[in-house]
Amino acid sequence: MKPWSQRENEGRLGRFAVGVTLWLAILTALSWGYRGVCRAALQQPVFGVDDSADTLVVGDSHPQSSLDPAVLVGVENVSGSGESLFFTFYKLRFLLDRNPGIRRVILGFSAHNLSKKYQDSLLFDESVYPEDFESYYTLLDASGKRLLRSWRRGFLVASLKYDFGVPIQFYRYRPATKILLGQEVRRADFDWVGGFYGSARSKLDDEQIRRKIKLYFLDERGRFTGVSDLVVQSLRLILALCRDRGIQAWVYTGPEHMRFRSRVPGEALSAFEAVRAATALEFPGTWWLDFSENSLMDGAFGDGDHANTVGARIISAQVRDRLAGSGYGPQRTTEKR
């Protein structure tokens, strides 16, 4: 092995510097182009809801599986599985900006939506829905990003990708790939959009219910972990957004089977009721729809806390009847972007 000499060192350092600079220059150019494509993806004219719809359903898998647009005429369900209310706020704001004809929002809201353990896992846990996290990240503004900022890989990747345009796994972001390939971008290409999900399956499994209760509410020692302040704040932001835009807000609590409901920790239910009461006081114009103790038959549940297609039809019909008293009806003909 040759020892280093000053001249050799200078030559090698020079070549190394040129190589690194060239690499960075290429990466910067690629990033600049890719960032433009990512931004263009969100400017696509594909976020308008159906002409006949004047109501949006937002939330997680509970409203996603139980509010069937086939029964609720004029309603578009854009709920997404495992969606935190924190993301729901940004998603709703984005869609309302592009759909000024929306008159009503039905927001899914149950006890598990408040649970600190579950909500923190959705927002901060590396292993929970990493792809969804990246998808929702595109909707966040600076303050939202600041609230989620961490050293977790998912956040770093999303930030590098969408804030700086570094084309990390670029092929996974379908809208951008389609733009690059000159193909037509559709709303379904955006993973965060969501939509009604009906399943005919019916399986009430006590072991699964026990696991879900633990997933939603309990820490390793089986204790309730409290309420997520971030989510409570998000709920208030959503209702304020609706109020400020003159949109009727309906807060909907989906059906839960008694075997599930009876195992929800009492502290979680009390905390839920307390938040609901405080929110109702703060936003008096809000309508509340609570189907959590609806006595649906066993065959109407997909599992302990989700309706299946049978249950969705029943619940949707009941929701439709309740909405009817508030001027609900398929009457929208307004413009959209």
Binding site: I26, E126, P167, I168
Partner: peptide, 11 residues
């Protein structure tokens, strides 16, 4: 270098 930046596995 580019393979490591662009093609790491999602998780």
């Amino acid at each position: 270098g580019f393979a490591l930046v662009i093609f790491p596995a999602p998780a």
